[in-house]
Design a protein around this nucleic acid. Sequence first.
DNA 1: CGTGCAATCTTGAACGAGTCAAATGAACAC
DNA 2: GTGTTCATTTGACTCGTTCAAGATTGCACG
Lengths: 154, 154
Amino acid sequence: MSTPELEQALRGAALRVTRPRLAVLTALHGHAHATTDEVLGLVRQQHPEVSHQAVYDVLRALTTTGLVRRIEPQGSVARYELRVGDNHHHLVCRSCGSIADVDCAVGAAPCLTPSEDHGFVVDEAEVIYWGLCRACAAPTVLPTLEPPAERGTR
Amino acid sequence: MSTPELEQALRGAALRVTRPRLAVLTALHGHAHATTDEVLGLVRQQHPEVSHQAVYDVLRALTTTGLVRRIEPQGSVARYELRVGDNHHHLVCRSCGSIADVDCAVGAAPCLTPSEDHGFVVDEAEVIYWGLCRACAAPTVLPTLEPPAERGTR
DNA sequence: CGTGCAATCTTGAACGAGTCAAATGAACAC
DNA sequence: GTGTTCATTTGACTCGTTCAAGATTGCACG
């Protein structure tokens, strides 16, 4: 995704075009499901002066305007991905915390419909599939190496 | 739910029967989706000496043994409910944060199946429906001030 | 019914993701 | 260019949750 495109996206959301914002968008373009801390690290590779707080502010601004989507699986810190407009869901590994995207199983509309809405006006259905990723589900009989190290869980 | 039943549930999970644990289970029985803090308050109504930390420990023990289910909607602190065995999901109000239960829309098995599993071994699908509850979706009429003079949206 | 071990609880401190606030700096409409 | 307003920096702070050490207590066993 080129810089002019990113600028246009920001202007389209009535946001000023700034260096930290472009850097955050670029970082997310290359790293889906990044944490705030990871985004900060990526941004600082290009712009070491960017502050902690700026990344939080930028991510909040982008999230509230819909340019970026925030996900927060249990036990994980917040993660962000570029909103691509489609209604996709997530696979989360209970062991290593890795996340993969999946398209909505039933298409866009039906998965918005609970069986009984209790009077709620529903506008979004969020689905998280929990399980084990290929690596963590593999038999742990690796001859020379240790089983997959645990990451991301506290 | 009576105390003997709760004791049996604890023993069945290989957990010792203690006063804080019985109190937490009782509290959750009467208050679904309670936060840790709310549970602590409820427990202390009967047993004022129970510590902060005990409630955290108890909730973790109950959660890991499956007696209690932990849910963590975006922007909310952790909430707990008695695991009743069924596979139900949640409606969450974006405005006030209230939570309601809904049965799984598609039954138990199908909603476990993403369209493409990326090699993941999925064992659970968690669904959160986001929207507005009946009260928050209602027109914002202030009761004690002047009566509503107009109708329609906005 | 005691005894002993380990699980559990109390107390108190610490951690860390995220937020608040004040002052400086930069976008961009004019 | 200039000025207003939005963004960012800096640094302190909140609050849910966890860690650690020592005191209790459930309960298996004799």
